[in-house]
Design a protein around this nucleic acid. Structure first.
Lengths: 142, 142
DNA sequence: ATATGTGCAAAGGGTTTGCAGATAT
DNA sequence: ATATCTGCAAACCCTTTGCACATAT
């Protein structure tokens, strides 16, 4: 496997260890995932991985802005690879989380205008029902 | 003091105790506040208040949708009285949190269109610099 | 070769729970 | 009167930390 995160770590003067690569690959693979799920997933192929190392590395990677905390209402804290701004869509049926990249400038400008706030960053979560689950519900009715 | 939350509690078949009223008033007074701050605040006038009661009630009030969890990135979890949807503005200078009530329908519609999501609820946080802090910075430059 | 990172086990700190006594209705 | 709630203290996590060994560079 090509270790896409090797250079990211090096760029931050962090050593490229198996543990760190496993953590980053796991998070990257899942998109959004919480600590326990990361641990369980990695533990399958890598039973010697310790939780102390996981916690330490998660914190370090957040500090270095390689990871980002995702705090969704009514959910355990999750982590994701830091990407460009996007909206989190949280499906109430299947608990899935989708990312959507969409123009938020008009809203941000309206907020600035109304509040006088200079906005540097935004975090948007929307709760609802995803396309797949909507379709499932519809099928079961008809 | 008129106990505005007495009826809210009764409506949910929860007994209107001093502790619950103190918790709700404290949160209402502050807008957004975390558990420890609630405890300290209530403890001043009400030293016998126990943390167990605070935790139990916070959880109960969230369950009954009287309170709402507010999870802001890089902040401790806070609580607020459940209100109509609004945007949280988080100032990076003074750490203040403002609420702003603004039209988000166009964005929600765009999201629905692009993703097929049926949105029931949204949670929006914007980070930046509030009007007061912007002005402070400007003054110190000129 | 050496600064960093890891695993282990113990410590720490926030949250929950069982129980007996207190309180709201 | 009685179901509910509270305070206390102990139990229970989840998370962090100290230390000796291992690893990446």
């Amino acid at each position: 496997m090509i270790e896409k995160f090797h250079d990211v770590l090096k760029a931050n003067n962090l050593k490229s260890t198996h543990q760190r690569l496993a953590i980053l690959n796991c998070i990257d693979m899942h998109g959004h995932i919480d600590i326990d799920a990361i641990y369980e997933h990695i533990h399958l192929n890598y039973p010697s991985m310790s939780k102390a190392t996981l916690y330490r590395n998660i914190n370090d990677l957040v500090t270095f802005h390689i990871l980002e905390e995702v705090k969704l209402p009514h959910q355990k804290q999750q982590y994701e690879i830091k990407k460009v701004p996007h909206i989190h869509l949280l499906c109430q049926e299947c608990s899935g989380v989708e990312d959507i990249f969409i123009e938020t400038k008009p809203l941000l400008e309206a907020v600035t205008l109304q509040s006088g706030f200079t906005i540097s960053n935004s975090f948007i979560v929307m709760n609802g029902t995803c396309r797949v689950c909507s379709h499932k519900n519809f099928s079961s009715i008809s």
